[in-house]
Design a protein around this nucleic acid. Structure first.
Lengths: 364, 364
DNA sequence: ATTTAGCACTCTTCTTTTGCGAGTGCTAAA
DNA sequence: TTTAGCACTCGCAAAAGAAGAGTGCTAAAT
């Protein structure tokens, strides 16, 4: 995936980097003179022009029109991200902010991700996304049935990913607490660990058999479980900070903006892209690199969130192609680290309140 | 609330209505000549000009600049919506669409609302919102504690609004299934029906007393309950079809668009507005009418969704001030009717699958 | 007293023009 | 291989011009 550095002299690299940096900062095309001033090079602008011409020929730069400066191409950005990027160190203030805000919002994974995406958005000033990927196979690791009234109960399921899902149910025949706990036991015996496509008829029959004369409620309960599992498969995506998209001049082109908003709205493509990604590190998708239709002039940076080695979500940033990659990468890296810590802490303390985490006295 | 019709002659009304209609359709200022052509009036353009001048003086119309046509003012829209609006009949095709799509998505309230907002958005071509309002006071009507492992359990609570919430908990001391069921019983005895602010120390002490030597887990569990209740208070809002905002020329003004997007993002204001509304019918908020800061040139139309006489949510539409009110009102009306039906059906059938499983009994 | 026709006037908007400046490519010298 | 110099090309922005739409007003007509 990475490009051979040979073929790009040190000077060319320096010039390329200077152009990308300048373009990220200013947004406009960058000319030879500007580089000469802001970069101490021992050559003249003419030389730089020559180098630029070559870089353009190689595909790293583009010229919007004949007599403008150069703009990095997609390839140019790719090279920049892969090889030229200097790491951006987060200020301690930023780190503190992450810690505080995340702690305050600590709770279920969904909420953590959402908060993280918000935070990412406000720290970087781009649009943040929080993703719960599609799971190829979720299963349920624990069932519970809660009796409410003679014809009304609730099915609660703890999924293999740790989420808790529930559904209201009405039995067509009356239900009893006893029957419910029998059913729960039976479910726990037979359905735990099964993904939606592995709930087969023989299993259902076995459960009905065990339920004896209370078999009447099995049908709808199983259907509900099935639905729950399919629902989990779906994946979800939340966007925060859309308004920030507008700050960037390239988005004043309404057509492009609409396309991007549409993509953010549909979510399908992005969800697909993220769900299919295997890397656990930070991914940078620039423009049309991926077969997935992300807007032509924008880039998506995202990082999967792992729990016990499994991907349980992702946070990311969407912005213009010329985004400040150094900062974005650092922010996501920092955030994901904090999330990991939090989740661990969360597991070890109680259900999610930031009361200082100290559990010595145990009451309010 | 409504305006005295006297003071507005029939002809003035007709002219005002014509202007609003034309402005809704075209978006630009409308002139006297245009009205003359599209409206059969027995007078000349000069007369219309005179009338328009008077209408402007009364505050129903505005002139963007000296020699443009007139544009309805906020007041003009208000009068239009209150008195002039002709009812728009939904086509059977649209009704069928609502029915089908909603049925397919039937499930928990959240999902119904979301689907409805999507649908509203695509039917009207404006931006849809789905709202779960802040509840002044939620309480919990049933507790259940699920044992997972020696130091790990789940608290499940059914709220007075019918939602089910859950939290993972870790006890600082080991827990036993027995202790958990004792605690659940105790919670059900003492905490049911209480809103967050009415969980007081004496109650907590009573529970701890009842738990005897297992009192150690009470503290964190109570805190969780408390947090759950506050969380419910929060309200939530989802937006769909943001990209549609861009279709309207008034949004090409980036500044305004950004303001509107910001509002949609913050959600606070809108949530406030909706939560505070008492009317059960359709509400139309135009521009800056409300003290709440909705964007100046846009309008919000929403309708609360009732269940057993209580407001459990709302669906709405956000669009430019010059939106097609007739259509929007009809769509929301239709949707809310369907949602009501669905929720009822949902209650009478099983937990959320449209398998046609027919049930006899049903109470709320 | 109301309505109408006519006309001058005012503003916006669209297009065209013009000038400027930034930046390039090329050539010839170092 | 690098540099200095220069003519050339474009895009951008302000200025100028032309076109049109719509009004307000006045004076005549009903």
């Amino acid at each position: 995936m990475s490009f051979p550095d040979r073929g790009l002299s040190e000077r060319k690299k320096q010039i390329l980097k200077a152009i990308v940096d300048a373009h990220i900062e200013g947004g406009g095309p960058v000319g030879s003179k500007y580089i000469l001033q802001n970069q101490h090079l021992t050559c003249s602008s003419a030389t730089i022009r020559n180098e630029m011409a070559e870089l353009e020929e190689m595909g790293y730069l583009e010229q919007p029109h004949a007599s403008a400066g150069r703009v990095p191409s997609e390839l140019g950005y790719r090279f920049y991200v892969d090889s030229l990027l200097e790491h951006y160190a987060m200020t301690t203030a930023e780190i503190a902010q992450i810690n505080n805000l995340l702690k305050a919002k600590m709770g279920e994974l969904d909420q953590i991700l959402l908060a993280a995406s918000n935070l990412a958005s406000s720290l970087t000033n781009y649009t943040g996304i929080a993703i719960k990927p599609r799971f190829r196979s979720v299963s349920i690791s624990k069932f519970e049935l809660i009796f409410l009234s003679a014809d009304h109960y609730i099915l609660v399921a703890v999924t293999s990913t740790g989420a808790v899902k529930s559904k209201h149910l009405r039995g067509k025949t009356d239900v009893t607490p006893t029957a419910l706990s029998k059913l729960a036991a039976s479910f726990n015996r037979h359905l735990v660990g099964l993904s939606a496509d592995r709930i087969t008829l023989p299993i259902i029959m076995r459960i009905e058999e065990e339920m004896g004369e209370d078999a009447g409620i099995v049908g709808s309960a199983i259907k509900t479980v099935y639905g729950l599992l399919s629902e989990m498969d779906e994946g979800e995506m939340r966007v925060s900070g859309i308004d920030r998209l507008l700050q960037y001049p390239e988005c004043s082109d309404v057509g492009q903006l609409q396309e991007l908003l549409g993509t953010l709205e549909k979510k399908e493509d992005i969800l697909d892209l993220v769900s299919r990604t295997e890397s656990n590190g930070i991914n940078v998708v620039i423009g049309s690199e991926s077969e997935v239709k992300v807007m032509n002039n924008s880039a998506l940076v995202f990082k999967p969130i792992l729990q016990d080695g499994k991907t349980v979500g992702a946070i990311g940033i969407i912005g213009p192609r010329r985004m400040d990659y150094a900062k974005v990468l650092a922010t996501l890296e920092g955030l994901s680290g904090n999330i990991a810590n939090l989740m661990q802490a969360n597991n070890q303390l109680n259900g999610g309140f930031s009361d200082g985490g100290n559990e010595k006295d145990g009451n309010a």
